Simulated scan of single mutants.
Amino acid sequence: MKSNLAIELKGADDNDSAALVTKALGDFQQAFDDRLKAIETKAASNDNAKLIERLDKLEAKAGRPNLTGDNDNDPKIETKALNNFLRGGVTSLDDIEKKTLNAGTPASGGYVVAPEYSSTIIEKLTQFSPLRALASHMTIGGSEVYIPVLDTGIEGGWVTETGARGTTEPTFDQLNLKVYEYAGYVPVSRQLLEDSFVNLQAFIAGHVQKQFGKAEATSFMVGDGNGKPTGLLNTPADYEFVSANADGSDILAKVIEAFYKLPGAYAANGSWLMRRETMGVIRAAADNATKGTLWSDSLANGTPATLLGRPVYESVDMSLLPTVAGTAYPVVFGDMASAYQIVDRVGVGIMRDDYTGAGNGIVKFHARRRVGGAPVLAEAAVLVKSVKA
């Protein structure tokens, strides 16, 4: 198709350049006007009623005020919903906003949000008395051990140059320490062991170590010797003691008395054992005292505080102070290596049993320990005694 906008530069006045340019521009303007008029005529002849009607509806809807509460077309609803969700969670959203955030609705998108699980199991604190670290201990190869004890020592006498010398002989006794077994087993389904994202076998092993340690520590302090070790405080009447008020009002004076009641050779290696609550009572009393620095807190992590220059250890198996009722022994001071003997036969061992429970799909973890202990020298410790009617 030949364009109507073509410019013809030839004419009668070819020799007149100005007239030629003027004529060309006039022809171009006339052709442009004709073409524009033709386009307008063609557009006017088309049926645009539907397009005009649709544009009118969109314009009316955009300008209409929101009187029905329908916020589906509110461009700010997503921003508002996200802000409320981040500030207060799902409970802070209204019904309209919940339609916008659908992570809590499985069918509306919640299935694509995967939870995360930790492989670390939170355990409650396991506390036990520190007597094993302070007492003497030995490993034996049988079920019991006999320890000789010097009952009466050798005694000489003053004599003259040629006087008769008397004879003297020591007398001996012996202590018998037996070992006892502490045992139990944990049944776990085989499928749980296979599918768990937590290393259950390692967790059970570590947990058994803690709980067995706690059980033996309690026996070392207060065990009655019946199928278990005999505790340091099982027979408190065997020890020297000082009496204190049950409310703890004179505890500072009494721990000083106990310190000097113990022979110096034992006191030089002595340790204090008491509950943490009793530590607080003594610490507060020491702060209010004018007798110098009796209590000294440690500046190094893991190093115990000292009372009268000797270390203080927390023992959860001791009695409380102030005393609640009856007779209590809230504080003990002594050379624990001389006062108590521990004998080890078999350490904590864990055996995995895949067979006896296989018929029911069960794996058993058997744990056991053989250990014994008993007080051996009562003169090496002193107790603080309190009585509340």
Rank of each mutant, 00 (worst) to 15 (best):
S17F: 12
D195C: 08
V346W: 04
L299P: 02
E59Q: 13
F212R: 11
G153V: 10
P236T: 11
A258R: 12
T303D: 10
V387D: 10
G153R: 01
I350C: 11
L51N: 07
E155K: 15
K291G: 13
D287T: 01
G142M: 09
Y355L: 05
D354E: 15
T91Y: 02
G11D: 01
E53F: 15
F128G: 01
F241G: 00
P236M: 08
A164P: 11
G109T: 07
R283G: 07
P170L: 04
Q191L: 10
V376S: 00
M336D: 01
E161I: 05
E194Y: 08
Y117M: 04
H137M: 04
L9A: 10
G88T: 11
L5E: 06
R275N: 07
P75G: 08
D173F: 07
D94A: 05
G372Q: 11
L177V: 10
P236G: 10
F32C: 01
E216D: 05
L252G: 04
F259V: 00
E40P: 02
T323I: 15
K291R: 11
F128Q: 00
R54I: 09
D70Q: 04
L9K: 12
V312E: 02
A267K: 06
A18Y: 15
V186E: 14
A103S: 08
L67R: 03
D47R: 08
T68G: 01
K254D: 03
I251N: 03
E257Y: 08
I362M: 15
R276F: 04
D353K: 11
A244M: 15
E169V: 03
V324W: 07
F220G: 01
G141T: 15
V149L: 07
Q341I: 00
E314Y: 04
P106H: 09
K385G: 01
A81D: 00
D238G: 05
S3V: 09
A44T: 05
Q174E: 14
L177W: 12
L58T: 08
F212A: 13
I350T: 14
G359F: 06
V332F: 07
S92T: 03
K61C: 02
L177K: 06
A380S: 14
R190V: 05
G292R: 03
I256H: 12
A205K: 11
L150A: 01
V324I: 15
R369L: 04
A44W: 03
K124I: 01
G206P: 09
N48C: 09
L150C: 03
P322W: 04
V376P: 00
M336I: 13
T152Y: 08
L308W: 13
A367N: 07
K364M: 12
H366N: 07
A164V: 15
A19L: 11
D195N: 13
N288L: 13
T306F: 14
T160H: 07
R352I: 08
G157R: 06
S108W: 13
N245L: 13
D47Q: 09
E97D: 03
F128V: 00
T139P: 02
E161N: 12
L320N: 05
G206F: 07
G26N: 06
Y313H: 15
M336V: 11
G110V: 02
E194L: 14
G357N: 14
V346M: 09
L86G: 05
V312R: 04
A19N: 00
Q211T: 13
A183W: 08
I147D: 00
I147W: 13
A38W: 04
N102H: 03
F333K: 06
E123Y: 09
A202N: 10
A135C: 14
A215I: 09
E123S: 05
G141S: 14
D224C: 00
N269E: 09
T278M: 04
